[in-house]
Design a protein around this nucleic acid. Structure first.
Length: 510
RNA sequence: GGCCCGUUGGUCAAGGGGUUAAGACGCCUCUCUUUCACGGAGGAAUCACGAGUUCGAUUCUCGUACGGGCUACCA
């Protein structure tokens, strides 16, 4: 494939806060598509709204992509031949195209103030039309270069009067587009309003910027959320009016991710309300200082997060649900993306993580587990030991932090023993058994789970006590509670001396 | 209100004119394990509705209902 027809996609977030799973899924689909076709994945920062700009959000977005291993081929930090990749730094580019549109009669200057606009909306509001739009039916009633005398317009502009440039949407024309997911979608332009293209501050709106930049950056396939579908005719019109129709990218409007309960698209609030993450990573709002927890910090593996994201609205047609990034790159197809929105299910998300923890080797899990333990003040230097422990417990950890609860007793004796389950059945005979058991295991010789178990069972048989009656007490002495991997494995790992110590302490406590 | 997009169990979903309508999550039962999980075996539960086309519609068409999105000098 030559460079001229190379597939180029872009993820174009606006840096206004945390990156939620919908955004991350858009990145993922872009990334998969690019990699599958050996194309270019561009990151473009859409920071045209100065009011909503949040410092740090761009770095945060980069970090999220980094976590998931989806590195842009071009972008503000990587550079590239079509930069700059921040729209705020491209401000000067947009004006000329807006002016070009005005010259061609496809756009016009509008001088209406916010108050004018508000008054218009109130004045023309009826039961049939509760939200009047600045469109073909109303534009001749407003203050713009269509209604004002050319000399007046010229004078207003020269005097620096605040104004915007609006697209002049034709009346009663059919505008259609082919969507890769939905097929043909048609609109009658009479329903489309004269969207602002260039704002009073000289910044473009999304509508102008997305078209200009997609053209200039040679984007071939444009993926975005379904919420953009209604404004797609504006974009199609712009591609046409700018004379770039042949270069228009193929569109794919992705289904929305919905709230698990009730209705509407998923928002950060739902996560707060229902107790699950919505953002990829922890996000601290620099203004309020509020911390919103992310999937990563709550203990999700990047592999699981990606896998979960991919299955939200896509499948390969088989019943396979577990995919590596490489498999996804190979198997992804935009045609198999669902049309309907999917309700987010946190239980299922956790299931993916659990599956990935089970699937990954102790060695691969080790860095994450080390981090978890270090946070809790446990530093492990013996890698082989740690891997052995991880192998023992990983099947019972759903989220990474659970590795702490599942492994802490390997490193330190339980501080408190939960004795309720065994106290009532505790007896002098059992105490004597454990005293003897300690004596027996202290004699030199090999030490592993099998040894610990056979000594235990032989002694129990000798004393005519059912081994089952003894195992739970042993577990509680070693672990402190009724959970964890097989008890003799634990004894084996912590060693005979520590086992003896804990048993002796346990006998005291009971 | 208008425009646009959707609709297979509670959730994610496969399928697509004739099927016992896959599979997964969750839930329940049993089993393994004298811990907790994992694993294994089962179970309950679905084609929104109405017309039409057809020998036959969950599948095609049209309506309706319902859900969603948009309707900003936000993206």
């Amino acid at each position: 494939m030559s460079d001229s027809n190379k597939i180029r996609v872009r993820f174009a977030p606006s840096p206004t806060g945390g990156l939620h799973i919908g955004g991350m899924r858009t990145v993922l689909f872009n990334y998969l598509f690019a990699r599958q076709h050996n194309g270019i994945f561009v990151l473009r920062i859409e920071d045209t709204d100065q009011n909503r700009y949040v410092p740090g959000a761009e770095e945060y977005i980069m970090a999220c992509l980094d976590w998931c291993g989806m590195h842009p081929d071009e972008g503000p930090h990587t550079g590239g031949p079509y930069g700059p990749y921040r729209q705020s730094e491209r401000k000067e580019i947009y004006r000329q195209y807006a002016e070009q549109l005005v010259q061609a009669g496809h756009a016009y200057y509008a001088f209406d103030s916010t108050e004018d606009l508000e008054a218009m909306r109130i004045r023309f509001k009826t039961a049939q039309n509760p939200a009047p739009q600045y469109d073909h039916s109303l534009r001749m009633k407003m203050r713009n270069s269509l209604t004002l005398a050319p000399t007046e317009v010229k004078q207003l502009i020269e005097s620096g009067a605040s104004h915007v440039i609006r697209i002049r949407v034709p009346e009663n024309e059919l505008v259609g587009l082919q969507d890769m997911i939905r097929g043909g979608v048609n609109f009658n332009t009479s329903q489309v309003d004269d969207k602002v293209l260039l704002k009073a501050d000289g910044m473009p709106t999304y509508h102008l910027a997305v078209v200009v930049d997609d053209y200039l950056m040679k984007i071939t396939h444009a993926f975005r959320g379904e919420e953009w579908l209604p404004s797609a005719p504006v974009h199609v019109l712009l591609w046409k009016y700018l004379g770039w129709e042949d270069d228009m990218p193929q569109w794919a409007h992705l289904p929305l991710i919905m709230k698990p309960d009730g209705n509407g698209k998923l928002s950060k609030r739902d996560g707060d309300r229902l107790g699950f993450p919505v953002y990829a990573m922890d996000w601290k709002d620099p203004k309020t200082g509020d911390l919103t927890r992310g999937f990563r910090e709550l203990g999700f593996l990047a592999q699981a997060f990606i896998n979960m994201l991919a299955m939200l609205g896509w499948n390969d047609g088989s019943s396979q649900e577990l995919f590596t990034m490489q498999e996804l790159i190979r198997k992804f197809s935009i045609e198999r993306v669902h049309k309907g929105g999917a309700k987010f299910d946190y239980e299922k998300a956790k299931w993916f993580n659990h599956e990935w923890i089970k699937r990954l080797s102790p060695e691969m899990l080790k860095p994450d587990v080390k981090k978890i333990l270090e946070i809790k003040g446990i530093k492990v230097d013996d890698d082989a030991l740690l891997e052995r422990i991880i192998a023992l417990v990983k099947d019972r950890c759903v989220l990474l932090p659970e590795f702490y609860d599942q492994t802490k007793f390997f490193f330190e004796a339980p501080k408190q023993l939960v004795t309720e389950p065994i106290r009532s059945k505790w007896s002098l005979e059992k105490a004597a058994f454990f005293v003897d058991y300690c004596l027996l295991i202290q004699t030199p010789g090999p030490w592993d789970a099998a040894v610990a178990e056979s000594i235990f069972k032989n002694l129990a048989a000798e004393k005519h006590i059912k081994p089952g009656e003894l195992q739970l007490p042993l577990r509680i002495m070693l672990v402190g509670d009724k959970y964890g991997p097989p008890v003799f494995d634990i004894a084996s790992v912590i060693g005979r001396e520590e086992t003896v110590k804990r048993i002796q302490y346990g006998i005291q406590a009971l």
